[in-house]
């Protein structure tokens, strides 16, 4: 008999639960099989490829990402979570409006099959949000982008276009870097 827990959380701004789920359920399975949020991709199942990274917003510990394939619902119970479905905005007429990171990935042709893309989007999003609170020098951007995205595996495009897209967003967004003339004005 599998033990159950009563799970509830805020996912993409929506209250989820309370619902009884097996206590050893991994988050990716909850998202896909219980909540029909299929954008979070299961790949390696070992926390190694990071295609399944989701965002946790913790008022005390800050914002961080976890691999949903190896993070259990017992850890995320009661927490505030964002998945790929919660990243895009809305254009005022009901149509999705890609975030700056998503738009940059489209413009840079950063992905082909897209299986790894939700993980890249979430980690890059957390990086941008971190830089909003703690800007860095422009010449550190490449190193910081590499460190943030290095754990993510892509088997199509070879990373460069992902990294270039995130670097461009950071350098062109006011407030993320200092000593950077390019970020003083918003891009057209």
């Amino acid at each position: 008999m599998v033990e159950k827990i009563t799970f509830s959380a805020t996912i993409n701004g929506q209250n989820v639960g309370p619902m009884d789920v097996p206590q050893d359920l991994m988050m990716v399975e909850l998202l896909q099989e219980y909540l029909n949020l299929t954008g979070t991709r299961l790949s390696c199942g070992q926390g190694a490829c990071n295609a399944c990274r989701i965002i946790v917003d913790d008022p005390v510990k800050g914002t961080y990402t976890v691999a949903a394939c190896v993070t259990g619902v017992t850890w995320l119970n009661g927490k505030t979570v964002r998945t790929i479905e919660g990243i895009a905005g809305e254009d005022g007429e009901g149509a999705p409006l890609p975030s700056a990171i998503q738009q940059a990935f489209l413009e840079h042709f950063s992905f082909q099959c897209s299986y790894c893309t939700p993980g890249f989007v979430n980690s890059a999003t957390v990086l941008v949000e971190h830089l909003q609170r703690a800007p860095i020098a422009a010449d550190q951007v490449e190193e910081v982008v590499l460190a943030a995205l290095d754990p993510h595996i892509c088997r199509c495009t070879g990373y460069v276009r992902y990294y270039q897209a995130v670097k461009e967003v950071i350098l062109n967004t006011p407030g993320l870097t200092h000593d950077n003339p390019a970020s003083k004005e918003r891009p057209a």
Binding site: I5, Q23, D24, M26, Q46, G47, A48, A67, C69, V70, T71, G72, V73, T74, W75, L76, N77
Partner: peptide, 23 residues
């Protein structure tokens, strides 16, 4: 127990058996 199942068991297993060459 909740912390172990939430953060460790995904790789190391609920029974701590691990996985060859990874955990």
């Amino acid at each position: 127990a909740a912390l172990y199942i939430g953060l460790c068991a995904g790789c190391h297993g609920t029974d701590g058996a691990g996985q060859p060459h990874s955990s």
